[in-house]
Design a protein around this nucleic acid. Structure first.
Length: 754
DNA sequence: TGAATTTAA
């Protein structure tokens, strides 16, 4: 293979769960039950007699579907699997990709009469997966989606009273746990893709374990927990669920050849380029290539280089279709990776880690793995989040490799040596140890977890890390400390009702005081969705020219508000989006988020009204001489005397959703009052430093304030990349900040010192 | 003064 990269002979692997193994030797779990012997897909050798389905009469599906289900590797283990699962409270299921575990196990349980008393939940880290799995399983059961089999994701609940098998995002189940921490609706919770260790799955581990224990103590319907993982590191899962047995299922993956480089590569981009063209010159052009790089800029640059080189290849060499792939690419361009290349042309996809799990492309024969990712790390000392290019973990490398063997045998070029690979971390550090914990902490407190610091996390974040989250929540007024016991304040409870970062929830809850809830709802929706602005580096001048008309000297929040208004005024027009370099898919999402938040404003009020007066506390908003229009929440009527409110309030009202009309100052005041922890001030030397810790920071070049030097700003995000950048800034008056939090700012603000 | 991985509620 590529001479410069210097690949020695390949090794053969069956990917999915990791390196090759012999049946007897692994996996390393404690009580391992091998449910399916090797050779499942081969067809040769002694074919086992197929066990009949639970009730012969319960087979209403046409033969084709039935045959298809029976042909899955997992089917041969069905009887054993059910026998095991019937008697277990908890189990860990290690199933390679292609084993059929996610679609079949919920059906087996249901058909076997396990967990029929209530609902079987299957969680997924991603929305699309939850939806497509539910669709698939309801097809297999020949039922209408939303009847026996349904799904619940944000903005979309396709379930009914008949639903017994429910696919949902892990974030959604977590949200449900806030109002019912015992998960009473469910007889069984299957946590799928557990190896990905998303922050939501990790919190769910603890929630589900606690619910299981508590239900047992109370003599209620037992809760069965099944953890499903596609990688070998299941020991931790098993230990966490008091030594739950590990059931092992073999999958059906195609063999993949792996090449390592002979020498370490100091320039992985160059090595990737060489590899791509080497493959291109040698392999049949119907075989596509997938390259893993780290980010947009790198990918765009590499795409351009590839296209340039492809133009000047010798005769007889196939042509090349180069497609970049990353999350912020407009949806229409993302879709192109699924289309086949024209005849005589090879498809080369250059992607971020989005193609590791989120997007699956068929027909990939070759994977080129640079061994690098861009990922967030958390620095507990400074409390800063750092985004940096780093080495992948072994798990990630296997995941990438597996992308080559989905339909047929494949090849993976690893642009690092085998020795280097051996030094990679075994697993990716779980997200819960890598990011800000304020949201999680608020959610746990809303579930009335007695002590967040001792919460039974599978992989504990450091105490400093949790303490920092508690401190943030205290500053936001969400917490109070009653005799050493942390509890939520009434505002804190309302904050937990919003599917937002706590500081954004607080902003909304404060907005009535500034008569600008309409505007704040829009701004917060825009901030809580992926960027609606599309900035192709190659068309920078065009973008700048077009964006000029929206720009506000008051900062990014007001600018975003202008863009949303323009979008709305054009009737949510897609062509308008395209002309203005606005990501229409994200913009539509903003509108959905906004209406959800608006609903919650009404509900949060109603919920607060139900709390007895003694504990309700003062209501955070008062309607003094209303400017603008008042919207009422679907005829909400509150009984007077149920809660304590200021005497200025009328008897009958709901949370006032007012518009400040053209008054942007009150919007900025509102932001100052809720984001005061995140302020930075101009220093005498022209640089910026945060007010709180005097961390040197800079205005991000994407900000409309990049060329300006306002004295004082609040920002919504701080991220360390090349520098410590503030993103989404709003110009504020130092006086407003002082007014918002006099204790916090005493002797801190430059303005108050001078 | 110069640039963002990804997912979810």
């Amino acid at each position: 293979m590529p001479e410069e990269a210097g690949f020695p002979p390949a090794k053969r692997f069956r990917p999915g769960a990791g390196p090759p193994r012999r049946a007897g030797s692994c996996p390393p779990g404690r009580r391992v039950v091998m449910l399916l012997a090797a050779g499942g897909g081969g067809g040769g050798g002694g074919r086992r007699q197929q066990p009949p389905l639970a009730q012969p009469s319960a087979s209403p599906y046409p033969e084709a579907v039935e045959l298809q289900r029976r042909s899955l590797p997992i089917f041969q283990a069905r009887g054993q699997l059910l026998a095991q699962l019937r008697n277990l409270d908890s189990a860990v299921l290690l199933g390679e990709t292609g084993s059929g575990k996610t679609t079949q196990i919920p059906q087996y349980l249901y058909e076997g009469g396990i967990g029929r008393q209530a609902v079987i939940a299957v969680t997924q880290p991603r929305r699309v997966a939850a939806i497509s799995l539910a669709t698939r399983v309801s097809d297999e059961k020949r039922t209408e989606l939303g009847k026996l089999v349904g799904y619940t994701v944000r903005f979309d609940d396709v379930t009914s009273e008949d639903t017994k098998i429910k696919f949902l995002t892990d974030g959604m189940l977590l949200r449900e746990a806030i109002s019912d921490s015992l998960l009473r609706k469910y007889s069984c919770v299957i946590l799928d893709e557990a190896h990905e260790r998303t922050i939501h799955t990790d919190v769910l581990f603890g929630v589900v374990k606690a619910a299981q224990k508590r239900r047992k103590e109370l003599g209620k319907l037992p809760l069965k927990v099944i953890v499903m993982s596609a990688t070998m590191d299941v020991d931790l899962f098993s230990q966490y669920f008091s030594g739950a047995p590990v059931l092992y299922l073999e999958g059906r993956q195609h063999p993949i050849q792996i090449f390592y480089t002979k020498q370490p590569q100091h320039d992985y981009l160059h090595a990737a380029l060489v590899s791509v063209f080497q493959i291109h010159q040698e392999a049949p052009c119907s075989q596509d290539i997938l390259v893993f790089l780290t980010g947009q800029e790198e990918i765009e640059a590499m795409s351009k280089t590839c296209r340039d080189i492809a133009k000047h290849l010798p005769d007889g060499c196939p042509s090349m279709l180069v497609l970049p792939l990353y999350a912020s690419l407009p949806y229409a361009q993302q879709l192109r990776v699924f289309q086949g290349a024209p005849k005589g042309c090879r498809k080369v996809i250059i992607s971020t880690n989005i193609a590791e799990t989120s997007i699956t492309i068929t027909g990939i024969k070759y994977v080129v793995d640079t061994g690098m990712v861009k990922a967030k790390k958390y620095n507990p000392d400074s409390g800063l989040e750092v985004l940096a290019v780093q080495r992948v973990s072994k798990t990630q490398a296997w995941q990438r490799t597996g992308r080559a063997g989905r339909e047929d045998s494949g090849v993976c070029y690893r642009l690092y040596t085998e020795d280097e690979f051996e030094k990679f971390e075994k697993m990716t550090v779980p997200e819960i140890q890598r990011c800000n914990l304020t949201s999680v902490t608020l959610q746990l407190l809303a579930m009335k977890v007695p002590d967040v610091l001792t919460f039974d996390f599978m992989s504990k974040p450091s105490p400093d890390h949790i303490q920092a989250a508690i401190a943030q929540l205290e500053l936001l007024g969400a917490l109070e400390n009653k005799d050493g016991q942390l509890t939520l304040t009434p505002i804190g409870r309302k904050m937990a009702a919003f599917p937002l970062e706590p500081k954004f929830a607080k902003t909304i809850l404060l907005s009535p005081k500034f008569h600008c809830t309409e505007e704040i709802l829009t701004i917060i929706s825009l901030l809580s969705v992926d960027s609606v602005l599309y900035n192709p580096p190659s068309r920078r001048d065009e973008v700048q020219a077009v964006r000029k008309k929206f720009i506000s000297s008051e900062g990014d929040h007001i600018t975003l508000l202008n863009i949303y208004r323009a979008f709305k005024n054009t009737g949510r027009n897609k062509d308008w989006c395209k002309e203005n370099f606005v990501n229409s898919k994200n913009m539509m999402l903003v509108a959905e988020v906004r209406s959800q938040l608006r609903d919650i404003c009404f509900k949060a009020w109603q919920a607060a009204a139900r709390v007895p007066a003694s504990t309700a506390g003062p209501v955070p908003w008062t309607a003094r001489g209303a400017r603008g229009s008042i919207a009422t929440g679907g005829g909400t009527v509150l009984t007077s005397g149920v809660f304590s409110v200021s005497r200025f309030l009328p008897n009958q009202m709901s949370m006032p959703i007012l518009s400040s009309r053209g008054d942007t100052e009150s919007v900025r005041r509102c932001l100052a009052h809720s984001l005061f922890v995140s302020t930075a001030e101009l220093q005498p030397d022209g640089s910026y430093a945060t007010t709180d810790t005097h961390q040197p920071v800079a205005i991000h070049p994407s900000s409309v304030l990049f060329h300006c030097k306002p004295a004082c700003v609040v920002y919504t995000e701080l991220l360390f990349t090349n520098k410590c950048y503030m993103r989404d800034l709003c110009v504020v008056d130092a006086e407003w900040l002082y007014e918002a939090a006099p204790d916090f700012f005493r002797r801190k603000l430059r303005a108050s010192r001078n």
